[in-house]
Simulated assay, not measured.
Amino acid sequence: MALDHSSLNQPKFRSQWLRAAVLGANDGLVSTASLMMGVGAVKQDIKVMILTGFAGLVAGACSMAIGEFVSVYSQLDIEVAQMKREKERDSIDQDQEDDDGDEKEKLPNPMHAAAASALAFSVGAMVPLLAASFIRDYKVRLGVVLGAVSLALVVFGWLGAVLGKAPTFRSIVRVLLGGWLAMAITFGLTKLIGSSGL
């Protein structure tokens, strides 16, 4: 009796997709928050900050979707070409044709990958946007954005560690420090350039 390797690998592939979704959401979170903090360094207007965050969300989601589509389509082309070579090399009977049909169903779908990537990025990007949306006071707004983003970074760090079966504490610290560093550098450089009068 033949062993169905696909059924054995399904949990592994599911955890890989979930981990990729967490990483995509983390990208959206850090990128959008850094943009908003950078603009917040030189502009205190809430409307400018929100528009910047929204533009970052849309641009990032489109970039992630297109990048994932191209990457997965390239992978699909390689796998289809490999299947054709194997089909030509082996003798063709009815059972193998059925297997080919099953294999084609298991191939990666570029559209699904693109949509998932864009959605994951957008989920992360919504955190700083929602945190800043209803707070008029400039300093309070920056503090709330930093707090909300920090909490989300802790959650994403923990999820990434659990899905990747890695040490939880180290993963959380790494993700948190990385996010803080990205926001601090963006804020600092934008403040420097803004104050220089360029």
Rank of each mutant, 00 (worst) to 15 (best):
M1C: 15
M1E: 09
L3H: 10
D4L: 10
H5Y: 11
S6Q: 13
S7R: 14
Q10A: 15
P11C: 12
P11M: 02
G24V: 10
A25N: 04
N26F: 03
D27A: 00
V30A: 08
S34Y: 02
M36P: 11
G40W: 03
K43C: 10
D45N: 14
I46Y: 08
K47P: 03
M49H: 10
L51H: 01
G53V: 04
G53R: 07
G56M: 07
L57H: 03
L57A: 01
C62A: 15
S63Y: 02
I66P: 10
I66W: 14
E68L: 08
F69K: 00
F69D: 03
V70P: 01
D77E: 13
Q82D: 12
M83L: 13
R85T: 06
E86W: 04
E88K: 10
D90K: 15
S91R: 11
G101R: 15
E105W: 06
N109G: 07
P110T: 06
M111P: 03
L119D: 00
F121G: 04
S122A: 14
S122I: 07
G124V: 04
G124C: 07
A125V: 04
V127F: 01
V127E: 01
L129A: 06
L129F: 09
F134I: 09
R136W: 13
K139D: 15
K139E: 13
V140K: 06
R141Y: 04
L142H: 10
G147L: 07
A148M: 11
V149Q: 05
L151W: 03
V154G: 06
V155S: 03
F156G: 00
L159G: 04
A161M: 10
L163W: 03
G164S: 05
G164W: 05
A166I: 13
T168V: 13
R170P: 09
S171F: 05
I172F: 10
I172R: 12
V173M: 13
V175N: 15
L176F: 11
G178F: 02
G178D: 01
G179P: 10
L181Q: 05
A182P: 00
A182Y: 05
G188P: 06
G188N: 06
T190A: 11
K191D: 12
I193C: 01
G194V: 02
